[in-house]
């Protein structure tokens, strides 16, 4: 098992190098640091001196890949590629374009993101499975048909409207919870409730429908016929036989998302003013702070790869047929 994980982590290295190259090309080849400086300082009336100063302050004044002015190894290390891209491998994110420590920011903002994302995941899983089980139990009846239509309607609404609607109804009309904001400790609870509710409602449409098809697919299998031939009740057939098999694709589908929970939800956090990583990214995008975006791309990729590994491991835990090799 450990050997397997170690091997998978080794596989991850070329992928992270690839990610790094893509971001490097995007951020430094398509547009040179000069372009970025010019944009940050305003298009017109930029003196070359101002550009040089902007670059020097942020460490963009070095050559991209090879520094001809240096000797030996430093010719490679005193470059933007080394300083800005390779440093990411040791999780040294450096400073943002406005001079903040990105690593520290990420650590600070991780927790509010998790405070939203974890309950959304857990309760979402429960509600979606419940809805899907109900529909599967009443399959091919009017309840099922009506339920599916309702789910399709739910999933046809943009997430933005769930947020706006939720803020309007619960926050503005009913005054139950604050519309947005965040606080530390247990005081955060009243800020968390609404975003979590909104996200749950938004997730039911696609989640419930997807799980329903998984359930129906399992119900069509031969072992279900065997279970019925044993004289088991429909309830037992569904809960003991179908649910257990359906949980394999459902759980493993969820596991890949687990690490990405740290990344938070972009829109949810930004709408509700939650100081998490999601809103961090949005703020960075809107402020065009490329250092932060670059770091978050790398963090996201690392988390995704961890998710893939966890998925494989979770298969072996829930599916007796699969053994790691």
């Amino acid at each position: 098992m450990l050997a397997y994980i170690a091997r998978r982590l080794l596989y991850a290295i070329p992928i992270l190098i690839g990610v790094n190259l893509i971001t490097f090309m995007l951020f430094f080849i398509v547009n040179t640091p000069d372009d970025m400086a010019r944009m940050h300082l305003g298009m017109k009336h930029v003196t070359p001196q101002a550009i040089e100063k902007w670059k020097a302050e942020r460490g963009y004044d070095k050559p991209l890949l090879y520094n001809g002015e240096e000797e030996g190894l430093t010719a490679l290390t005193e470059t933007i590629f080394f300083e800005k891209s390779l440093r990411l491998f040791v999780f040294d994110f450096g400073l943002s374009d406005d001079g903040r420590d990105i690593g520290h920011d990420i650590y600070q903002r991780m927790w509010p993101s998790l405070a939203i994302a974890v309950p959304v995941l857990v309760f979402g899983l429960l509600t979606n499975i419940t809805v899907a089980m109900l529909l599967a139990f009443f399959r091919a009846t009017y309840i099922d048909v009506a339920g599916v239509i309702a789910l399709v309607a739910l999933m046809s609404i943009s997430s933005l409207f769930y947020i706006i609607g939720g803020q309007f109804v619960i926050g503005k009309l009913l005054h139950l919870v604050p519309i947005s904001g965040y606080d530390s400790g247990m005081n955060a609870l009243k800020f968390i409730v609404l975003p979590v509710l909104v996200a749950l409602l938004y997730g039911i449409g696609s989640g419930g429908r997807w799980y329903r098809t998984i359930f129906l697919e399992e119900i069509g299998k031969d072992y279900v016929r065997t279970a019925r031939a044993k004289g088991l009740s429909e309830r037992l057939v569904l809960f003991r036989h179908v649910l257990k098999n359906a949980m394999i694709p459902i759980l493993t589908g969820v596991v890949v998302l687990l690490p990405l929970l740290f990344m938070g939800s972009l829109i949810l956090e930004s709408f509700f003013g939650i100081p998490g990583l999601g809103s961090y990214v949005i703020d960075a995008i809107q402020a065009q702070d490329f250092a932060i975006v670059r770091s978050m791309v790398f963090v996201g990729s690392v988390l995704y790869i961890i998710g893939l590994i966890l998925t494989d491991i979770s298969y072996t835990l829930v599916d007796p047929r699969i053994r790691l090799s």
């Binding site: 072992y223 016929r225 257990k244």
Partner: peptide
């Protein structure tokens, strides 16, 4: 089909 007639996870 004995291969598919048994529940794989029990």
């Amino acid at each position: 089909e004995p291969m598919t007639s048994l529940n794989p996870v029990l």
